[in-house]
Design a binder for these strands. Structure first.
Lengths: 142, 142
DNA sequence: CTACGAGTTTGAGCGCGCTCTAAGTCAAGA
DNA sequence: TCTTGACTTAGAGCGCGCTCAAACTCGTAG
């Protein structure tokens, strides 16, 4: 698979794939005789996992640590696990924070909804008054 | 309240407070006779709300839209509400995404845990063999 | 044979959100 | 009076994560 094809099959652009290789997030890809990158489909799994780390807010710096442990292979499992566990906790904490913010947002939106409802009620009252005027006055608009 | 005091009482630095004022995220603060900013405690509520928007990933560009509607006062409630509702949906979507990633992370970590358990089992087996050697061979280390 | 399109490299540039510097002003305390 | 330190401004600089530009090389289709 050439870089263009990989770009289509992943969420990354060819530019980003080269950039990730440069910084070490993607392994150095084998080149064909004309020095073009030729990928194995298995790289997609790694890219997808990197995507999860990115989505969950892990900085590239930390992804590099993980990628390095992975490259070093067996014997690094405990460290990799520890890294992911630390990250998981920070993601959980962030989710909790977001949920707390969602409550505040709900309250705020609820406040606007009430205001809107009061305005509708007021309009309805005015309409009612136009239909059944209270005094001797005729209905008016201002 | 002077800017230093406000910085202490909020999560922002004095630098950031000035920056936010410059870009319009904080209202232009009244100055005392020596042109120093003098704040009313009520600004803290607004800063806190901006913090929620920031935590939930709203870009400054959008906060400025909201701040502008707020400055324009009554008549902008519907728009403000719509803005917050759109944001709320995007935050909810993001939380869902994070939760999905957490599942993947759990699986990955679970995989490392299994490997670790297999290693412990293996170690235990070796220890067992050292205590009750099977053949006529004496226990060895390599 | 030539033109095209997809790839290569190195390195510059960008958008975001701050963060800091430099040079100056001012008020209060020793 | 002098010093200290918190403040003022305009503008430069930074870390992150890309994103693009320039100049070049190939392989293939017409």
């Amino acid at each position: 698979m050439k870089i263009g094809e990989l770009a289509k099959r992943s969420v990354l652009t060819a530019h980003t794939i080269r950039y990730y290789e440069r910084i070490g997030l993607l392994p150095y890809a084998d080149r064909d005789r004309s020095s073009r990158r030729d990928y194995d489909g298995s790289i997609l799994v790694w890219i997808e996992f990197l995507g999860r780390l990115k989505t969950t807010g892990m900085p590239i710096r930390d992804m590099l640590l993980y990628a390095d442990l992975r490259d070093r292979g067996s014997g690094t499992e405990a460290e990799r696990r520890a890294l992911l566990e630390r990250h998981r906790e920070s993601v959980r904490a962030h989710v909790d924070e977001l949920n707390a913010c969602l409550l505040v947002l709900d309250t705020k939106i609820g406040g606007y909804a009430e205001t809107e409802q009061r305005m509708k009620d007021y309009d309805a009252t005015l309409a009612e008054r136009r239909r059944k005027p209270v005094g001797a006055r005729s209905p008016r608009t201002r």
